[in-house]
Design a protein around this nucleic acid. Structure first.
Lengths: 195, 195
DNA sequence: CTTTTTCTTGAACGAACCGTCAAGAAGTGA
DNA sequence: TCACTTCTTGACGGTTCGTTCAAGAAAAAG
């Protein structure tokens, strides 16, 4: 069956990408449908027709963000020094916080702002955090096998530490006049486990 | 000059304390003046008369929260094992997250939600984070002198690590089904520096 | 072409928002 | 008691919120 009727004037995927930027920067509650209309250049009727309502659109953008995070976690399994990969994930997070202050990590923002009142958003965030944690744990275990990390280190516990550290860096960097000052916190976290 | 006119029917300090709970739990934007009216049992006219507007009342509650945090940071300078004090501060944070899920740390919540658009709130959060950081650094230095922490540890860097860890624990705990699982992240953070 | 279907447009809706205000209540000072 | 001051009360205004909808536009199907 071929699809009939007037075609969409916008690309849905691209629209979600741009809506993601808005929700990421401003948060769920503070972003109004008027904001989205202005920033996306799409009138309310079309937005509601394509996505349902504000909450559904938000979940779509959050899922997209989570998918990006999953890709970053998966790249930890790539080749090269596992420990260097872990360090890169941490410094990338801090660099992002330095370059785009006031944006943070959308998963952390969502955990803080909407998770208490939104079980669907909670599931997405929980899964993304879980993937990040297990990706870090695997990478640390690989680094351990490669002799980059001391043998007595609890990789699971350290993965949780690093996950919390990433989220904490995003939070603290927002209030810091010079977020670069936090770089040595990453060194400190890794100094304790390197062989 | 003695104060004339009808006296307040409520205790201002107590009201700020209760308003703090509401803002802490729900955040700034999501808390309406109607919510405050209902939870505090004080009508709008009195609230505006006593505090000015919603933003001013919020800053009062944030300052109170920051003062509590400062007290916690100051208690790190108390007697007893400095390292044990540091550990207690971390485990207390996690316990709070376990006992009151969906509340987090009001400083971190504010850093995420309102700091990008509110320089006054930013100053309060920045100062509180600074006090926490320097309190942790002092405690670590004391622990180092007492031989509880290895001599080659950079106490400033590790203080920043622990500050970010506390904030990160609050964030990650919100999405975690069993926040207690994060306890070993604290162990991991301290295992790397103990003598 | 006509019909049918889908999308776009932008005005409009009820609800909720923050903040105000006039009237009454409850104190102090003389 | 009578002024005077301050606080309380709750209705109200102007704005913004998320959402809907009727009318017109643009494509496919026959």
């Amino acid at each position: 069956m071929v699809r009939t009727g007037r075609p969409r004037s916008f690309d849905e995927t691209q629209l979600i990408e741009r809506a993601k930027e808005v929700f990421w920067r401003r948060g769920y509650v503070a972003t109004s449908m008027r904001d989205l209309k202005d920033e996306l250049g799409v009138l309310p009727g079309s937005l509601y027709g394509a996505f349902g309502d504000k909450h559904a659109l938000f979940l779509r953008t959050l899922e997209r963000y989570a998918a990006d995070t999953q890709r970053a976690a998966a790249s930890l399994r790539g080749d090269g020094s596992p420990l260097a990969g872990v360090r890169k994930l941490l410094t990338d997070a801090l660099d992002a916080a330095r370059l785009s202050p006031g944006r943070g990590c959308m998963l952390g923002n969502t955990a803080t702002e909407v998770v208490p009142d939104d079980e669907e958003a909670a599931r997405i965030v929980r899964r993304a955090f879980g993937e990040l944690e297990s990706g870090l744990e695997e990478a640390l275990a690989n680094a351990q096998r490669a002799g980059e990390v001391r043998g007595d280190v609890d990789c699971g516990a350290h993965a949780r530490l690093l996950l919390a550290l990433v989220q904490g860096l995003h939070v603290v960097a927002r209030a810091e006049a010079d977020p670069g000052r936090l770089g040595d916190a990453i060194d400190a976290a890794l100094a304790g486990i390197t062989a």
